[in-house]
Simulated scan of single mutants.
Amino acid sequence: MTLEIFEPRTEITPRMDSRISIQGRGEPVLGRIGTLETRLAANTREIEAAQAIRYRVFVEEMGAELPASAMRARLDIDAFDDICDHLIVIDRAIEGDTADQIVATYRLLRQEVADRHSGFYSASEFDVAPLIARHPGKKFLELGRSCVLPPYRTKRTVELLWQGNWAYALKHGLDVMFGCASFPGIFPEAHALALSFLHHNSLATGSWAVGAAGGHGRNMDLMPPEAVNARKALVSMPPLIKGYLRLGAMVGEGAVVDRAFGTTDVLVVLPIESISSRYVNYYGADAQRFAC
């Protein structure tokens, strides 16, 4: 998910010292279910532990190709990490300190922060600037780098991640969540059923329309509507994308192949006002559903 003036995967030294002044304090717990809890990473070591989780999932499990410096450090790291907040899920049943207990993570970038630096990560794949410009009164939040360790890919872990996102959005008065969501592999045709379902049923239109950047979009309209079995299409989708759809999300026009990460990406757009009332009630209108 960067503006053309900023290369997100350039070689950089894996140090996060600039985060200490921002995240050196303790962070409040945003949600808790059993031994699991979610909050923002509070210091450099916790951020690096989240980056190590991302490395395990993206590189060791999915085969992503990162810059040499990141591969040597065994951290999924890029320059956006310095300006983002890092949501983490912690399992207190694991021995060790908090950095040893991190089992899931999400990277959060607010519009006001992106505007002060080099824009949004997803702008390297999708033309998000016109979308944002059409909504000058709304504050956007980019969600990215979502990953969960295999033993924790359960409903309650996902609920905590969404509780964290929800609480964070309410705290900062944010109006729209968006970001890249991925299908495995670099051949969109392998996901013809799911991509066609998204194109015919969840395409962002009007003021929410957004397309791929730089002519890199791949056709998502791979099957006619009458050939798309909705149930089978939903079953074939990654859980993250299904979760977005349940909340009321839309997708942009065209998929983008990310060869470095070995994925086919779609842009998800979720205005908070569009989130189903039953989910607002479930997570808590005041973000307290899982906070105690």
Results as ranks from 00 to 15, higher is better:
residue 246 R to P: 10
residue 209 A to L: 02
residue 161 L to Q: 09
residue 1 M to N: 08
residue 59 V to M: 05
residue 166 W to S: 03
residue 254 G to M: 00
residue 149 L to Y: 14
residue 63 G to Y: 06
residue 149 L to H: 13
residue 158 V to E: 07
residue 6 F to D: 13
residue 9 R to C: 06
residue 289 R to D: 14
residue 74 R to N: 09
residue 283 Y to S: 03
residue 138 K to T: 01
residue 55 Y to C: 05
residue 53 I to G: 04
residue 65 E to N: 14
residue 81 D to T: 06
residue 55 Y to H: 14
residue 246 R to T: 14
residue 5 I to H: 14
residue 248 G to A: 00
residue 249 A to R: 03
residue 44 T to G: 08
residue 42 A to R: 14
residue 87 L to N: 05
residue 28 P to D: 12
residue 66 L to H: 11
residue 65 E to K: 15
residue 62 M to R: 09
residue 106 Y to S: 04
residue 206 G to Y: 04
residue 283 Y to G: 02
residue 206 G to T: 06
residue 115 D to S: 12
residue 185 G to I: 04
residue 87 L to K: 03
residue 216 H to A: 11
residue 282 Y to V: 01
residue 149 L to R: 15
residue 177 M to K: 00
residue 198 L to Q: 03
residue 230 A to W: 07
residue 45 R to V: 11
residue 264 T to N: 02
residue 277 S to G: 12
residue 11 E to I: 02
residue 125 E to L: 12
residue 165 N to M: 15
residue 216 H to W: 00
residue 285 A to T: 11
residue 33 I to E: 04
residue 208 W to V: 08
residue 165 N to C: 14
residue 174 L to H: 11
residue 20 I to R: 15
residue 286 D to T: 13
residue 139 K to C: 05
residue 101 Q to V: 04
residue 259 R to L: 06
residue 86 H to M: 10
residue 206 G to C: 05
residue 85 D to M: 04
residue 85 D to Q: 11
residue 192 A to F: 05
residue 292 C to V: 04
residue 26 G to M: 05
residue 75 L to A: 05
residue 66 L to E: 07
residue 125 E to H: 13
residue 7 E to N: 15
residue 27 E to N: 08
residue 227 A to K: 15
residue 185 G to S: 02
residue 12 I to Q: 05
residue 205 T to W: 07
residue 246 R to Q: 15
residue 163 Q to R: 11
residue 211 G to N: 02
residue 160 L to M: 11
residue 100 D to A: 13
residue 70 A to W: 12
residue 218 R to T: 06
residue 195 L to G: 10
residue 101 Q to E: 07
residue 225 P to I: 01
residue 176 V to E: 08
residue 57 V to L: 07
residue 50 A to V: 06
residue 139 K to T: 09
residue 257 V to Q: 10
residue 17 D to A: 08
residue 83 I to L: 10
residue 14 P to H: 01
residue 88 I to V: 15
residue 159 E to C: 10
residue 214 G to F: 05
residue 255 A to N: 12
residue 167 A to T: 09
residue 213 A to F: 00
residue 19 R to D: 09
residue 183 F to D: 10
residue 268 V to K: 12
residue 283 Y to E: 07
residue 194 A to Y: 14
residue 157 T to M: 10
residue 157 T to E: 12
residue 29 V to Q: 00
residue 250 M to A: 12
residue 116 R to V: 00
residue 116 R to E: 13
residue 96 G to K: 02
residue 64 A to F: 04
residue 111 Q to T: 01
residue 241 I to Y: 10
residue 284 G to M: 07
residue 22 I to L: 12
residue 224 P to G: 06
